[in-house]
Amino acid sequence: MPDPLTRYRCADEDSIRWRDFPLRPGDIVISTRSKSGTTWMQMICALLVLRTPDLPAPLTTLSPWLDWLVEPADQVYARLAAQRHRRFIKTHTPLDGVPADPLVHYLVVARHPLDMAVSLHHQSGNLDRARLAELTGHPGSPDPDRRRPSVEEALVRWIDADPDPREELDSLPGVLWHLRDAWARRDQRNVHLIHYDDLRADLAGQMRRLAEMLDLEPPGPELVEAATFDRMRSRADRLAPDPAGVLKDRQAFFRTGRSGQGSALLSAADRARYHARAAALAPPDLLTWLHRGR
């Protein structure tokens, strides 16, 4: 019988790990694209579940990235099996690659793709490629003498690239593949789409909304403050997703968190080309929600 789950894999992650993972009623699966608010949503869930800004362990310990190949699967499964609190689990796998369970909540955070791509470019420069290669067994970075493109150059290349979205999920086709799948499920009671810009505009209101959706107590001001960008950046040693030492600078992971920077870097012609490509990859109602008039 064909496998009902789509498999997604690249050099350092493989969604096949979801096939053998036993979900529990009440689990929260945080499914996002890279640099789209993943760590932010993990922190919000930690605060809502554990009810304290003083987390009992680093965020990556409390909320592991299940499909990351850097840590052996059996270790990740064992750590999650030992948790007695309500679990909140990170993945970059789209929902069609994760087991569907009506008793599990799925949170999909969406960010304007151009802003995500800018953050991804800066994040790429903050990765220790040799360390990643050592941990995953895959080749390291390309020729170190090769000139790194500017953020503007990288953004234009990203708009024009057309890889298989199942192999390059952080490409434009991959981002919209992920969000298109979640958008099609948005009427399911346990699938929740959250926009990055809504978190920026009204963090307290969005945290109250999430608490209601997840059947948790609403947050007080202390918990909301702990989820702000500046507060999280000041605690990068405990909150940055770096359990294996692959970041050169943990504070740099929390760079600015701004919105609108991607569009501002492009010419009018490049912006038009981006919108034409997006229109070919996603339905108009999703793009209206995603772009928010920008």
Rank of each mutant, 00 (worst) to 15 (best):
R238A: 14
R24S: 09
G37N: 00
G137W: 11
D242N: 14
W177F: 15
P142H: 01
F229G: 07
L50E: 03
D128V: 02
Q123M: 13
L80Q: 09
P25N: 15
P221Q: 09
D215L: 02
H275F: 14
S267C: 03
T39W: 03
L281Q: 00
R17V: 14
L193K: 08
D3N: 11
Q123S: 09
Q206K: 13
S263H: 07
R189N: 10
I89K: 09
C45W: 03
L66N: 06
R273E: 09
L281W: 02
D115T: 08
A272H: 05
P243M: 05
L266C: 11
A279F: 01
A244N: 10
E153S: 11
C45V: 03
R33V: 12
M116R: 12
D249H: 06
W40M: 11
A161R: 09
P58H: 12
D197K: 12
S124M: 14
R146N: 13
E13T: 13
P243I: 07
D164G: 00
L290H: 02
R231C: 06
M213R: 13
N190F: 10
T228Y: 09
S63N: 11
L216S: 04
D14Q: 11
A154G: 15
G293D: 08
H178Y: 09
R273F: 12
S31R: 02
H121Y: 15
L203Q: 11
A81D: 12
R186E: 05
D162W: 07
S15N: 14
S36I: 07
P113E: 12
P173I: 04
Q75E: 13
R87Q: 10
E153L: 08
I30K: 02
G245N: 07
P2F: 09
V118P: 00
R255S: 13
P4F: 08
A184N: 03
L216W: 01
L210M: 12
E152S: 14
E134P: 01
E217A: 13
V49L: 01
P221S: 11
L47V: 01
M232T: 03
A269E: 12
H121D: 10
L5Q: 00
A280P: 06
R209W: 14
G137R: 08
A269L: 10
P149T: 13
T60Q: 08
G37L: 08
A252I: 03
K90A: 05
R148L: 13
Y106S: 02
P139W: 07
L50C: 05
A226G: 06
L120P: 02
L132C: 09
D14G: 15
L66Y: 02
A82K: 01
C10E: 15
D20E: 10
N126K: 05
W65H: 07
H192Q: 14
S263D: 12
D12Q: 14
A227F: 00
L50D: 05
R189M: 10
R24N: 03
P165Y: 00
H122C: 04
S34V: 12
G26R: 09
